[in-house]
């Protein structure tokens, strides 16, 4: 059931590439119009007041501009990448906690992601979005509450009912390719 969400995912990825390569303000404005209100809504749903959420959403979008070179379309959709930035901002600014992050893989412009990998990942992300929307209300609400920060770690049930196996395999493949490219470069 295609609903155009694949091409939209691809469009956002192209916008980030234009911000990265050309500092394209029009592409950034498209990203801003789509994502900023969602980040704000997400942060308000996570317990932030409107003013804090507005300020954080602007800050997250500024981070999108500055860190566009770190976005890897073979490993994440733009929505996923933006989510991780917004989540970290919530932990840092709103919860005032520190979040240890895994070691960076050292992604750099030398290792351009494989176009087919990137396309497949954007398609999988769109499919995951449709699967989430199609879940029974009760199940979907539980997942949303976990990501809005309504549930403690022991209350989170990992059984999502979502098809995560395929997207995981895609990402794993992209990681293997990246590791291979890195080992070629640094024998």
């Amino acid at each position: 059931m295609a609903d155009g969400s694949e091409s939209r995912e691809q469009e956002w990825a192209d916008c980030v590439a234009r911000v990265r390569d050309l500092r394209d303000e029009a592409a950034f404005a498209s990203l801003f119009d789509h994502f900023a209100p969602r980040i704000k809504g997400f942060l308000m749903r996570s317990g932030a007041d409107a003013a804090t959420a507005e300020e954080c959403a602007q800050d997250v979008m500024a981070t999108v501009w500055h860190k566009a070179h770190l976005f890897d379309p073979a490993r994440a959709s733009v929505a996923t990448w933006v989510f991780t930035i917004a989540r970290n901002r919530r932990i840092d600014t709103i919860r005032r906690q520190r979040r240890p992050e895994p070691e960076d893989l050292g992604w750099g412009p030398e290792a351009e992601p494989d176009q087919a990998d990137a396309l497949a990942l954007q398609q999988e992300s769109a499919r995951l979005g449709r699967a989430l929307a199609a879940l029974p209300d009760k199940q979907r609400t539980l997942i949303e509450r976990a990501y809005f920060g309504d549930l403690s770690h022991s209350e989170i049930a990992a059984e999502t009912g979502l098809p995560l196996g395929t997207i995981k395999s895609r990402i794993r493949l992209a990681l293997d390719r990246l590791r291979h490219a890195m080992s070629q470069e640094r024998p």
Partner: peptide, 19 residues
Amino acid sequence: ASFDAVGGAVLTQCDAAPM
């Protein structure tokens, strides 16, 4: 990363708050 993708889907489907 696959669980982060769930977060991305939640963000996408979240009620937007006008900036």
